[in-house]
Nucleic acid binder design. Structure first.
Lengths: 193, 193
DNA sequence: TGTAAGCGAGGACATTTATCACCGTTTTTA
DNA sequence: TAAAAACGGTGATAAATGTCCTCGCTTACA
């Protein structure tokens, strides 16, 4: 698990061997079974999570059983609940594995220490945050102005690698439509073709 | 205009007089008439904008005349199109004044210089970005899972100070519903009360 | 200061999307 | 490996929301 992270971070940030070793010394590796939770709604999310293998999702479950999926996190990406992680408040979200997964974890205090002592890591996270801001804005733009079909096409365009790995009702929950609507959109597209 | 900014930034970041003076030396002040544009769709957004007085909005206009409002920016807040500003690419958005406004502007290179030379400013922007990320996530959460009425109530809760200053059809464009729907929601609430 | 534009409301109707119920198939898991 | 759960689809119907229109009233501005 850490080796995969090391390969990735060496390509993305210019870290010395010592710096990588420092990151390793604070990292915790964890294997997740399918459907296993890393964070439960109501818990504090104590880790920043790097996924080295598998696929996670971050979602809110309502009383009535319906879900809102905020994020899919495949291998070679990060996730956490930023508010819960930063302020140690109960999270509104579950983070759970959709596939058998492997992750690397850092606590808030360890991550703070690493960022404060590894300038290249700070630069790397700054870039990452900038990119994720862009993704947020695009998603808002689509969510407030696009039809269900346009939202789906946007998803296909941006996340074709995820589309093939998750059930359609979860794609629907991510888009904010019902699974029936999504099913009909797909049907209509097949017919039109 | 700069004096208002100075008051604000001194309270938010611990900047020395020299640092403030450095910011001033790179700042451009600008007065905007109602309806005046600071950025047009298709232009590059060359400035990071601090509003000292008035109210701006950032929005995308479609061919058919409909609009999607991404953000309202009242006095004592920042705005820009982050992608256009960072990468000097054409913006998808207009930024225009809804009220007579006063703003302070910095170009990308000047802002980079200031952030690189004023540590407290970097810290301040990090906090700002963290907060705006939280707002983005909340907005996505509402957009994908709430009814039109819930979206409106959320807006009232978070932005009551803006609600009173913008026409309702713009609130509707921000929420991603039609002005008629918003009008009916408000009517229904009056009746229920 | 008068004229045009903007604004908020609301009626009639169309469209989109959600809800509910059910089915056959595949996948999971005990 | 058999039972249970998950999955994708679809029809009938309901609800939410959008579209198009008209109408007073207010506001902006030339």
């Amino acid at each position: 698990m850490f080796p995969e992270f090391k390969d990735y971070i060496q390509r993305q940030a210019n870290l010395s061997d010592d710096e990588i070793e420092l990151m390793r010394s604070r990292a915790v590796e964890k294997t997740l079974r399918r459907k296993e939770f890393l964070v439960h709604q109501g818990d504090v999310c104590r880790y920043k999570i790097f996924i080295t293998r598998g696929l996670l999702r971050t979602y809110h479950a309502r009383e009535d059983g319906s879900e809102r999926i905020m994020q899919f996190s495949p291998e070679i990406s990060w996730t956490t609940d930023p508010e819960s992680f930063e302020y140690s408040t109960p999270s509104n979200f579950n983070i759970a594995a959709l596939e058998p997964s492997e992750v690397v974890l850092w606590t808030k205090s360890d991550l703070r220490y690493l960022i404060d002592n590894i300038p290249g890591l700070k630069t790397y996270f700054d870039k990452l945050i900038s990119r994720s801001g862009h993704i947020f804005r695009q998603r808002i733009f689509t969510a407030i102005g696009a039809s269900a079909e346009e939202k789906y096409e946007e998803f296909v365009k941006n996340y074709s690698h995820i589309l093939t790995r998750v059930p359609l009702h979860m794609v629907a929950s991510y888009l904010g439509v019902t699974r029936e609507t999504l099913s009909r959109i797909r049907h209509a597209q097949v017919i039109r073709k």
